[in-house]
Design a binder for these strands. Structure first.
Lengths: 150, 150
DNA sequence: TATTGTTATACTCTATAACTATA
DNA sequence: TATAGTTATAGAGTATAACAATA
């Protein structure tokens, strides 16, 4: 653990201050458009399963960054709401096969597009070069924190 | 609700994808250094009360962006852990006066500096101009989402 | 009557420990 | 024995509705 430059430190402090605020905004939008029934982790789970159809529980837990029991419970909720199906794999009967239902696909789409639209409305207020800065920052952060990636 | 430019939309999608990842990292660091007893909302609450000593419950709830009952419960936990004191105001006996205890001040300091240090370590891996981009982005985002501000 | 705060209730998030079933 | 997943348990986050106390 080496000495920190002021810039490194200030950058960290700003992240610590700003990210939770943006997170709260995102949570609000996802809930609003997810008919009040989707949390952010549920939303991210649907999103992942949509891209990796048939993923196992462990795979999803890894990518979302939850423990297996936590993910198991989270998926319980998604199954109960009819957004996901959970079937035992034939090749290895210890593993699950997760798939979105039609209802789940619809909900994911509605929640995502709703949240994107509202966030975009906010982002209209700033200048194009400012949006470009945010975009670049998100790409950089995505590389700095890769193991926690969606 | 007007038509979105591709840039506005892409910026929103990137926020939606990246912010939860960074948030998870922050949560992990705060917990790690907060001796596993501080959540991010609790951390933010301590931080706010530290700056606005004697704040009322409503003031804190407003600034953190929680409902009164939620904040009441959150503060319950902080009082139980001995990080905060809660006293009725003399001028208006409906209101509370929240203050950090010495223990609370110490915990806030340890949690914040620990999280900042670890985040900074990550940020060492990138170039100074990339850190500058992140810093600028955080400042811009802080202005775009002002009502939810810390 | 309006404001401040708490209690009751009910979800979700999240973890650890203990367990079951399969390989 | 090792892996995949569930169940049990527990504390925190969060909201709405109903309530008490104060102004």
């Amino acid at each position: 653990m080496q000495r920190l430059t002021p810039q490194e430190e200030q950058c960290a402090r700003d992240l610590l201050e700003t990210v939770p605020i943006v997170m709260r905004m995102i949570r609000k939008q996802v809930r609003k458009h997810g008919a009040s029934t989707l949390s952010v982790p549920q939303f991210r789970t649907l999103s992942f399963v949509n891209r990796r159809k048939g993923a196992s529980l462990s795979e999803v837990a890894d990518h979302i960054g939850l423990t297996l029991p936590s993910m198991s419970g989270l998926v319980d909720g998604l199954v109960t709401h009819g957004y996901i199906t959970r079937k035992t794999q034939q090749e290895d009967r210890r593993k699950m096969n997760l798939m979105l239902t039609e209802r789940g696909e619809k909900m994911l789409h509605v929640a995502r597009e709703g949240a994107v639209t509202e966030l975009s409305e906010r982002l209209k207020r700033i200048q194009p070069n400012e949006r470009a800065t945010i975009l670049r920052a998100m790409r950089i952060l995505g590389e700095v924190f890769p193991e926690e990636k969606l």
